[in-house]
């Protein structure tokens, strides 16, 4: 696709960090820029350097893609809203004396571990600066993890809570909204 090794190197470096379709689109533009400068200078080396200079370094391009990434935005949104939903559930569990519920220790530990892994995945996605695919995978895993945690908590409350209590009025809608928003957003994001 590229006519000069420098261009090919630049594209290979971008391919390690960005989605294939984005790299394909950039490759077309970079090739056209290279041809423009080649027509001006007649020197492939100079034309390749000028084209890369006009496009921007790998780090600059990657940073621009990460800034605009819907996956990163989703990770930041889930990170920002997570403590609020968590606090609402915390208040609900305390009010319902959840420690007295007949839930096996293994289930409790599994829930805690899933929660910890989910938060770690969100932090990883929000801080990732090098590999788009890694950020995408981390956000996807965290989104699915949060859906599972929300659903489990809703089932637990429905089956085990003795009576309705006021913190549920915040926690249940918050979880339902998060599940629905994530399920609505995920297919669109996955399709791109």
């Amino acid at each position: 696709m590229a006519d000069h090794e420098l261009i090919a190197q630049h594209l290979r470096a971008l391919a390690c960090r960005l989605p294939p379709q984005a790299v394909e689109e950039i490759a077309d533009g970079l090739h056209e820029t290279f041809e423009k400068y080649l027509a001006i200078s007649g020197d492939p080396e100079r034309a390749a350097r000028a084209a890369i200079g006009e496009f921007g370094e790998v780090g600059l391009i990657t940073a621009a893609f990460f800034r605009e990434s819907p996956w990163r935005r989703a990770a930041l949104t889930l990170l920002a809203t997570g403590p609020l939903v968590g606090a609402a559930w915390g208040a609900t569990l305390v009010a319902a004396h959840a420690w007295t519920w007949p839930v096996p220790l293994a289930v409790r530990m599994l829930y805690g571990t899933t929660l910890a892994v989910t938060v770690l995945a969100l932090l990883l996605a929000a801080r990732e600066r090098r590999a788009y695919r890694r950020m995408r995978r981390a956000t996807l895993a965290a989104a699915l993890g949060l859906i599972a945690l929300d659903v489990l908590m809703l089932i637990a409350i429905a089956l085990l809570a003795p009576v309705p209590m006021w913190p549920m009025a915040i926690a249940i809608p918050a979880s339902l909204i998060r599940i629905l928003a994530t399920l609505r957003w995920l297919p669109t994001a996955l399709a791109r």
Partner: peptide, 15 residues
């Protein structure tokens, strides 16, 4: 602008 930074902005407008 650095050309490479225009593409993510176009993708955002498309979304």
């Amino acid at each position: 602008l650095p050309t490479g930074t225009v593409y993510p902005a176009l993708h955002r407008l498309e979304r």
